[in-house]
């Protein structure tokens, strides 16, 4: 068999392992589903009324405005779990074992990323189901839904590679907490819950230019028909850029793995 076939086979083995972990330790998928669902309840049920239709530029229902941001948070929670899983592999020493075996070097990490991708998309689908049950209505057709799914997948890819790198780099499981904090807090300082235009001064500048805002705006445009403008290009650029950074960083960390 060729090297490439071996690489694919080893990656498939690692993916199977990652999925088995999800089944054995379902808390990862529960967190990336339950927490965003609770936030959705909180924002729509508690703040939604007070924020009123004034919060949404298009004047539509608040739940329609907030769902794209909640979807993105779900991806963030999924990435936190990935960072922890990779870190556990690292500290338990099983990555060192893999590194002493004649297997495709990249399969160890691609298995994690592919597993994370499947996990995240699954929780995103379930979350959309919850949102629909709560009254979310989308104007999207099949193309828009597919495009939205593609964007969520792309974001998930970017955050998963970053998560893998963080998981490898962190000495302890606590070391991954800062990454979790960033991906869980960034959505709050973005257009997820209120338009960035309502924010003050430097916060507005930050919220307007951080990666999540363009991604959320694009998702919102696809799902509810609001204007996307140049957000689509910016969102894609952020996702591809972050993926590359995560990929390269993870590769470097994997190589120096045992020297720490």
């Amino acid at each position: 068999m060729s090297t490439l076939t071996f690489a694919a086979r080893d990656s498939a083995t690692m993916l199977r392992r990652s999925l088995l972990h999800t089944v054995r330790y379902p808390v990862t998928i529960i967190v990336s589903l339950a927490v965003p669902a609770l936030l959705l309840l909180l924002f729509v049920g508690v703040f939604g009324g007070a924020l009123g239709t004034g919060a949404t530029p298009s004047g539509g229902k608040y739940i329609d405005y907030v769902v794209p941001g909640i979807l993105l948070m779900s991806v963030g929670y999924g990435a936190s779990s990935t960072a922890q899983a990779v870190n556990r592999d690292m500290t338990e020493g099983i990555i060192a074992r893999f590194r002493t075996m004649a297997i495709s070097r990249s399969s160890v990490l691609t298995g994690h990323v592919a597993g994370a991708l499947i996990r995240t998309l699954l929780s995103a689908v379930l979350l959309v189901g919850v949102a629909l049950a709560m009254g979310f209505r989308s104007s999207a057709g099949v193309t828009e839904w597919l495009a939205a799914a593609g964007l969520v997948a792309l974001l998930s890819l970017a955050l998963s590679w970053l998560a893998v790198a963080v998981g490898l780099a962190a000495g302890t499981i606590e070391g991954t907490a800062s990454f979790s904090l960033v991906v869980q807090l960034l959505p709050f300082v973005s257009s997820a819950f209120v338009p960035t235009g309502t924010m003050s001064g430097s916060v507005r500048w930050f919220a307007h230019n951080e990666p999540f805002t363009s991604i959320i705006d694009t998702l919102r445009g696809l799902l509810t028909g609001s204007a996307i403008g140049h957000s689509g290009i910016v969102a894609a650029a952020w996702c591809v850029g972050l993926s590359l950074i995560g990929y390269v960083w993870a590769g470097m960390q994997f190589k120096r793995g045992a020297s720490r």
Binding site: H21, R24, Y25, E92, A96, R97, T100
Partner: peptide
């Protein structure tokens, strides 16, 4: 050609 069993067990606890 080699096999390595390290100082700290490298088994997958979830499996």
């Amino acid at each position: 050609a080699i096999g390595v069993t390290g100082q700290f067990s490298a088994v997958d606890g979830l499996l």
